[in-house]
Amino acid sequence: MFGYIRILKPELKVREYNRYRSFYCGLCRVLKKNYGFSGAITLTYDMTFLVMLLNSLYEPEEQTRTGRCELHPLTRRTFISSEMTAYGADMNILLAYYKQLDDWHDDNDPKGLAMSGLLKRRARGIISKYPRQAEAVRTRLHQLSLMEKHQVMEPDTAADLFGELLGQIFCMKEDVWKQKLYEMGFYMGRFIYLADALSDLEQDKKHGKYNPFSEKEPTQEEARVLLTTCMAECAARFETLPVLRDVEILRNILYAGVWSGLPEANTEERQADAE
């Protein structure tokens, strides 16, 4: 589900890539420090984007450190973090916790039980600190799992649910930017859900798994319009925010990177490399 909100590296300047990487590593470091190894493995590109977006909007004080990472011990890394990194880490854990809980309750997936158990104590603190976001994640994921259970083939409704979930996560605080951030998160959430469903459609059909597009598979053109509309609306909200810091990295993600994670794009790249 997560991983679509990424950079398109060839289109970034080296300086910009290094800065993005520093935020990614910074988020991982905060996750590990606050939530241990089980927290660090929940790291996503999507939350890295959120951290950078909020960082650019609020321009808090940044802490920059260099050091070595256990997973990449050969080179020194730069870690950038701020108040927004802590928030991104908390949201990462929240999403991971409820997702694992759902996997256990719905599929009796033992990994879900194990992971949610590991994250439970850590998630409790986050749930009490961010009740609005926690409630949104809990209820929307539950509603999505009910749709799956009852085989409800309404991709738009499902996408809206995921959009509402991400919209609430994007609103770090209830301030003047609340509405714009919510709408941005909402359309991005719709994009993520629909892109994931479209990407998995073939495999889901083969294995008889739930996919809201199973009954009526959209044409390529319909799929393109569906996804483009979501990102267009998301980007339109973004451009109204007074974001100046790191704006080219964020634009790289919103206008180019989100498309590079789709399987058709990877096929194109592999074919081009082969040639």
Partner: peptide, 28 residues
């Protein structure tokens, strides 16, 4: 004025559905 505006219009990987022209945000 930083000249970045043309960059994403030419993104090769930006058209996953094979419509060519390199820019999948054609509608936008």
């Amino acid at each position: 004025g930083n000249g970045q505006s043309g960059t994403y219009n030419n993104g090769r990987a930006a058209d996953p559905f094979g419509f060519g022209g390199g820019y999948s945000n054609q509608g936008y």
